[in-house]
Write a protein that binds this DNA or RNA. Structure first.
Lengths: 210, 210
DNA sequence: TAGATTGTTAATCGATTAACAATC
DNA sequence: TAGATTGTTAATCGATTAACAATC
């Protein structure tokens, strides 16, 4: 880590700020007031969040849009290509792969590049999705290391997820986005984010009054 | 709302507890200790969360698994079928529809039923995904009301998302899961959850040190 | 009865907001 | 200079944890 341990709540807002800045390329300056309004965050919190990483603004003036954008990209490691792998090319995995690849091709700001897919189904091996090859899961360790991927997406069935996580961690992956509906365990130095759609929908059902 | 306004942090954990209970159908009793351990939550917090909705346990004994499960289902409105619609049948929408439908068919505990899909692409109209019909977006209001759907999923491009949200709200939808990468606006009585995959991946990139 | 565990209150912790001196 | 806005400290708010009396 380049800075002291920053709270997850803070890190979560950084991509939000970055998006606002990327959507305002013709604007020279932006105040915490305006940045906050567009990101849905209070101006004070915008300033406090940014202050964890340095002094990016000028008193009485605001922040230089392009400069702050570049600094945020560096903080988020998005200033250079980030290779990424995906495990589990079922219908969800397939869709996620297409989604990401297209985003990568169409949006030059989006530097997260899916470079390999893995599945255990022999029928899928050798095929590709939007030009990304599908490898057998037995090649996971070798390929992941070869490609230098430190970020991974998991879209395998629940009962296979933990063993896939373990294999990814062994291959040096440091952050995982998990779509399988199970609680997974990772070492302290690996970040795990759950994108559990069923859980989210069940939560939303709470707000649906008869 | 059947109870006073309950914090979002609390509601978010309820489906987690429900899952643990559903995965332990042969166990008569469960303590806050055990329930918490399996859900990844402290025992004290489990008890406090549940206490917002009533007294479900017995001192010195714990909670009756089946009873607590049924109560949680009622709290989350999952004790009866919840009709749901999805707008935007691109590759992501398509995959989400398949994913949900299969889950609904295979898992009797999963009562969220996708009943209609909408898209503006004329080529898709009249087709179906896993037996769910695709309607033109012009029929959104009529069909949503007819089917009584109060929960919706949005998987349309960013620039179409706000107008879709407005149409859903007008049709009586009370909770929306949004996959489009934009900040959307809804009235106070509608719950909006963002499932912004790019944002989540960008956040994870922070943890990938060179 | 003795042991265990709930429901609840008080203490702690962390995150957000308010306020303002510094300064562009 | 006068007006505006940052970076930062202090105050507030809310969520989690600790502790324990009630009681099964």
């Amino acid at each position: 880590m380049r800075w002291k341990r920053i709270s997850d709540a803070v890190v979560r807002r950084l991509p939000l700020y970055l998006r606002v800045l990327e959507e305002a390329p013709n604007q020279e300056l932006i105040s915490s007031q305006e940045l906050g309004a567009r990101a849905g965050v209070s101006p004070a919190l915008v300033r406090k969040d940014l202050a964890w990483f340095g002094e990016f603004g000028k008193q009485g003036v605001g922040y230089e849009t392009a400069y702050l954008r570049d600094e945020l990209r560096k903080i988020l490691n998005l200033h250079k290509p980030v290779p990424m792998v995906l495990v589990g090319v079922g219908s969800l995995g397939h869709a996620l792969a297409r989604y990401n690849r297209r985003r990568f091709i169409q949006d030059p700001n989006f530097t997260l590049e899916l470079v390999a897919l893995f599945d255990k189904n022999p029928e899928l091996i050798g095929r590709e999705v939007e030009g990304i090859p599908i490898y057998p899961i037995t090649k996971l360790n070798e390929k992941t290391q070869e490609l230098g991927a430190k970020l991974a997406i998991i879209a395998v069935p629940a009962d296979a997820a933990q063993s896939v996580v373990d294999a990814l961690v062994a291959a040096g992956v440091k952050a995982i986005l998990n779509f399988a509906p199970v609680k997974l365990t990772v070492p302290d130095d690996v970040e795990l984010a759950d994108a559990d759609l069923s859980l989210e929908l069940q939560r939303l059902a709470y707000y649906v009054n008869d």
